Structures are given as C-alpha cells and as structure tokens.
Simulated assay, not measured.
Amino acid sequence: MNEFEYYIIDRAGDKAYPLIGPQDDSFHTMMYPRTTTRIENPEMTNFKYCEPIPRKPVISDYFSEPESIVSKKIAEVLAPLDIKGIQLIPAEIETHTGDILEDYFYIHIYNYLKAVDREKSKCEADLYDPDSLAWIDRFELDRKVLEKIPLEERLVFKLIEFTTIHLYHKSVVDAIMAVNPQGVLFTKVEDWYF
C-alpha cells in the first residue's frame, strides 16, 4: 500500500444531498471547528439544512458544512480505528421540515499538518500569514514532510495552509467505502482541483 496515497473527503456531487450549517443558537457548534485540540466533555453539536434545499432531499451518511458530519454507519468504522487527532462528537441535524436526524457525529479533526508542496502546487500564499494559502487550484503533498511522520499519526488530518481541506489516507478511505456509504465522495489528491 502506498503510504502517501491521500484523498479529500467531500459531499457527493448529486444535488439531492443538502448542505448543512450550524444552528444559529448553537455557539459551541460554531466554535468547535476553530478548536485545535481535543474537546473535553463536548456537547451535542446541532446543525440544520441550509439553502438551497433540494426539491427531494436525500438523507445521506455524509454531510459537509465544510466540517464533516457522518452517520453512525461511518462513525462505527472510524471509532475502532482509534485515529490520532480526530474525535467523534454526537450531532443532530434539523431538516427543512423540522424533523431531527439523530445518530450523526461531527468529526472534530485537530490533527493539523503543514504538508503542501508549494513548488509543485498551483496556489497563492496569504498576504498576512505566510503559513497559510489564500487560494488553492490544485496541490501536491510534500512527501519529505510526510515521511518524517509515522503513518499512524497522519491517517486523517487538516492542512495548516488551508484548513477546509480534510485528508484521509487510502486505508481509512477503503474502510469507509467498504460499508457502502451514501453521499460521500473521496477524490485522490492528484485528481482534485478547486
């Protein structure tokens, strides 16, 4: 297995899968993605469908906002893997009709790596923070950086340079896809473009 084969997780392209966002009165749900450490005694996270709502929304195993919200089906794959730097926090999603979808989990990723090979990527540095990127069209990961980190410490991570990109190692992708989840799309880093 290629220890440098990574995929970006996203919502499937079918427009039947709704977008979600934090509930307006759920301050902690809005703040958790900004937390760069494990959250002790986390509260239930609360999300809702956002506009534009599909005519016939499909309830899937994956929602993005851009944080990842997964069904119990996917959470039951991730939990026993005991992945360093992620935490599964219970979540509820309110649909456009007011129904509450339970048995969902927010994936709190607090494993951040500075791993973009800027020489081989098409990106633009942030004017105010040289560690961050203002824009990415496509990118490659820096293998020299990754090879210094044991694989078990980089199975799932966010890019320091562009935190809305969440990367999953092929071994984790294979485990998730083995349960045939609905609504999730994994794109190989080399094939991804903005």
Rank of each mutant, 00 (worst) to 15 (best):
Y7S: 00
D10G: 13
R11M: 05
R11S: 09
G13K: 13
D14N: 15
D14P: 04
A16N: 14
A16L: 07
L19E: 02
Q23E: 15
D24W: 08
D25A: 12
F27I: 15
H28A: 10
Y32G: 01
Y32N: 03
P33R: 07
P33K: 08
T36D: 12
T36H: 12
I39S: 13
E40G: 01
P42S: 06
E43S: 13
M44D: 03
T45Q: 10
N46K: 15
F47S: 04
F47L: 06
F47C: 05
F47Q: 06
Y49C: 00
C50H: 04
E51C: 05
E51Q: 07
P52S: 04
P54V: 00
R55I: 14
K56A: 12
K56S: 13
S60D: 07
D61K: 07
Y62Q: 02
Y62S: 02
F63S: 01
E65S: 15
P66T: 10
P66F: 14
E67G: 10
I69C: 00
V70I: 15
S71P: 04
S71T: 14
K72N: 14
K72W: 00
K73A: 13
K73D: 09
I74E: 00
I74P: 00
V77L: 10
V77S: 08
V77F: 12
V77A: 06
L78H: 03
L81W: 05
D82A: 11
I83H: 05
I83N: 03
I86V: 15
Q87K: 03
Q87L: 13
L88N: 04
L88G: 03
I89G: 09
P90E: 14
P90T: 04
E92M: 09
T95P: 07
T95S: 08
H96F: 08
D99N: 11
D99T: 03
I100Q: 07
E102N: 14
E102S: 12
D103F: 00
Y106I: 02
Y106S: 06
I107V: 15
I107L: 13
H108W: 06
N111F: 08
N111T: 08
N111V: 09
L113I: 12
L113K: 08
K114W: 05
K114M: 11
K114C: 06
V116R: 03
V116T: 03
D117W: 01
D117Q: 10
R118C: 04
E119G: 08
E119Y: 08
K122Q: 13
C123N: 13
L127A: 15
D131E: 13
I136K: 13
R138M: 11
R138C: 14
F139W: 12
F139L: 10
D142E: 11
D142H: 03
V145I: 15
L146C: 07
K148W: 08
E152I: 09
E152Q: 11
E152G: 00
E152H: 11
L155C: 08
L155D: 03
F157V: 08
F157G: 10
K158V: 02
L159F: 14
I160N: 09
I160Q: 07
E161T: 09
F162Y: 13
T163F: 04
T163D: 11
H166W: 01
L167N: 02
V172F: 06
D174P: 06
D174Q: 14
A178M: 12
A178Q: 09
P181Q: 09
Q182G: 09
Q182P: 00
G183V: 02
L185C: 12
F186M: 01
F186Q: 07
K188V: 00
K188H: 11
D191V: 00
Y193K: 14
F194K: 08
